[in-house]
Amino acid sequence: MTCDEARILLHALLDNELDAGHAREVEAHIAGCPGCAAELAAQREMQRVLADTNLRYTAPASLRARIEASLPEPQRQPSRRSVLRGFAMGSAVSALAATGIVAIVLRQDDQQRILSEVVSAHLRSLQAGHLTDVISTDQHTVKPWFNGKLDVAPPVIDLTAQGFTLVGGRLDYIDARAIGAVVYKRRQHVINLFVSQTSSTEHRPPKTQTMQGFNCRRWGERGLNFWAVSDIGADELAEFVDKFETAMKANVEG
């Protein structure tokens, strides 16, 4: 490796973007080259100072408000026209909701709506501090945590050995019901596994859908509905579901 190459690759080393093989090559060069070693040390020091400095800007509240105002929103301060429209539509919908008929009206859109709620819940979980209520890589800690909080505790299975690290659990709300979310990580990617009870005990094979750039794989088994959501590729998510299903079967039979 030449110094010119090393001067570029040492940044990838600093950023943890190199695979093990290339990292070893760069480290080997630096070990034998005082010039590149000094450059790495200097860049590491600069990165440390930068990391300690707040270089971000906060969007002004007025900008946030302007963007919010440009989005169509039902709860916004109603204008006279939208009040009239609201009587025509909104109150009719809420009257239906009050009687429970809305469940029938919406049934055909149910799956799409729940998918959208699942993706929204996944997005909320990615905001700082929202990912887990209980943080543990130990399934024997996560599993009892759910007990008493839900009618049915979700199966908590450690898949670390299979490449999916258990990081914790969380209570979430889908379809206006509290449900359990078991959180896994694949590299830096978060996988939320939502589990809810269903009256149907039939097996429904896994199916992947995409919404807003997220893959969601849903299936049904033993009276439970599952939704696995992540930004990892569809093939990796399918692998996750396969591994989970295999491990769950082994748990039940074993």
Binding site: R56, A59, L63, I67, P72, E73, P74, S116, L123, L126
Partner: peptide, 19 residues
């Protein structure tokens, strides 16, 4: 409104980053 809600939840958390 549903699209707006999904957009709000997906895009607004990144406002400070974009700004």
């Amino acid at each position: 409104p549903d699209k707006a809600r999904r957009f709000r939840e997906a895009a607004l958390p990144h406002l400070d980053d974009v700004y």
